[in-house]
Nucleic acid binder design. Structure first.
Lengths: 242, 242
DNA sequence: CAAGACTACTTGTATAGACAAGTATATACA
DNA sequence: TGTATATACTTGTCTATACAAGTAGTCTTG
């Protein structure tokens, strides 16, 4: 899973640079980010290019910019849950369409330091990862990515998710009653090649990323429109107690 | 509440022009939109300015752009709703906290041309507007703004929203069964001074804007973080059939 | 007829500059 | 001391231009 640098556009490199700073903790919520002119000198680009990187990250909810003040890392905490995800399978059924799904990935892997901190587990402990495409009348409509803490749901990998959606299974086995709050920050970039194939045939692909950690469930949704391949649309961030 | 044209930035005028074309049906989903160069001549702006209007509308899901082909009106029907708003009062109760609310505004006013086009009513027809703060243990947590079409819910202003939330009332009186779709574009800016007072005492204020139009309900949610006073964080755009 | 080249049009990326406007700090003045 | 004022720095808007790259149709050529 490569993140670019080589042939990627200049503005994308700057975005990745800033995202990396945030992911490693070099920049924390509230910290001031390099100004446009600083980035101009640092990356030898024009101001409009540096500006595009900052503006897009602002649109994605990562940064906050204020005229006269500067650019800051957005505070991802604090937001309570207010939304809940509807079950995609139910929704498609209600619409009178046929629902089908395809499993792309289903694996266990040790949590990196970054993931461990984010999901509230120890570094190296097992995280389950799954990636499933949900189709409406055969057309890919939603790409679902889930990270599930092994401590919480040890049998996650053994389930047959073509029969029962992960959402249904997790609701049954790991109900959460308290409305806990969690932090979810910036999304690492997707494996884009895999996404592009699906976007070809989908009118508009919804990308949802679910994370089950010790404290609750976090979901992030984004939309990909055709012709908008590298730029992902606005994202939604919320936290849902099951 | 003014809608631009005069002192608004050029790119905003172009956006409104295109949105108006879509709202009036002059441009239908799938139709080809004026190219960048066409807009350059039409509005006497530079290509970068015309481009900004088109790009932002693409990010907002209104348009679809493809290199070499052109710009087209997006099909809003393709992506189904997937989210629903939880009742803030219920949520706070479930959390074991005390819920209270305060009404800031409650008024009827004629729809401006801009609002009329957006909400699907005639210019000058009555729109109800309310603004309510929902508090969790006395702390302002959510600012709710609603525009309600008078045609749809004539008695909106007569309700006692300290007893029953607008959401509960509207669900009861104006249920929508079809999953209609609508476009909501740019948010006009808030009355900022009023917001700032609340942000002072709130850890993170959720701003939700509900719009009941002829076709359905649109909700836009944004977060205000402390230290993020003037610029509101990323916004959420979705459409919920009740 | 079919394959390739050419052309016109489109959007994508990028530059270098200009002025406007919001914020905070330092400075001079009453 | 307190109030204006000047300033430096920031982001916001905008222009005019250039080249790259994708699409579709036409024209040339074998």
């Amino acid at each position: 899973m490569k993140t670019s640098t080589a042939n990627a556009p200049a503005y994308a490199n700057i975005k990745n640079h800033l995202l990396h700073q945030i992911e490693t903790g070099e920049l924390k919520p509230g910290d001031k980010v390099a100004s446009e002119n600083t980035l101009v000198n640092q990356f030898s680009v024009s101001r409009m290019t540096a500006r595009r990187a900052l503006t897009e990250l602002q649109d994605e909810g990562v940064l906050i910019r204020t005229q006269g003040l500067g650019t800051f890392v957005a505070d991802q905490k604090a937001s309570g849950s207010m939304l809940e995800i509807r079950n995609i399978a139910d929704e498609i059924s209600e619409r009178g369409h046929s629902y089908s799904s395809r499993i792309l990935n289903l694996e266990a892997r040790p949590a990196s330091g970054y993931e461990a901190a984010r999901f509230g587990v120890q570094e190296g402990s097992t995280l389950f990862f799954s990636r499933i495409v949900h189709c409406d009348n055969g057309t890919p409509l939603q790409l679902e990515e889930r990270w599930v803490s092994a401590e919480r749901v040890p049998d996650y990998l053994q389930q047959d998710f073509s029969q029962q959606t992960p959402n249904a299974y997790l609701s049954q086995v790991a109900p959460l009653t308290e409305a806990d709050h969690m932090v979810e920050a910036v999304l690492p970039s997707h494996d884009q090649a895999q996404l592009l194939d699906m976007v070809e045939t989908a009118p508009c692909l919804q990308v949802i990323r679910h994370t089950y950690s010790r404290n609750g469930m976090i979901s992030l949704a984004r939309l990909i429109h055709p012709g908008n391949r590298y730029r992902l649309g606005g994202h939604i961030q919320f936290n849902t107690p099951l």
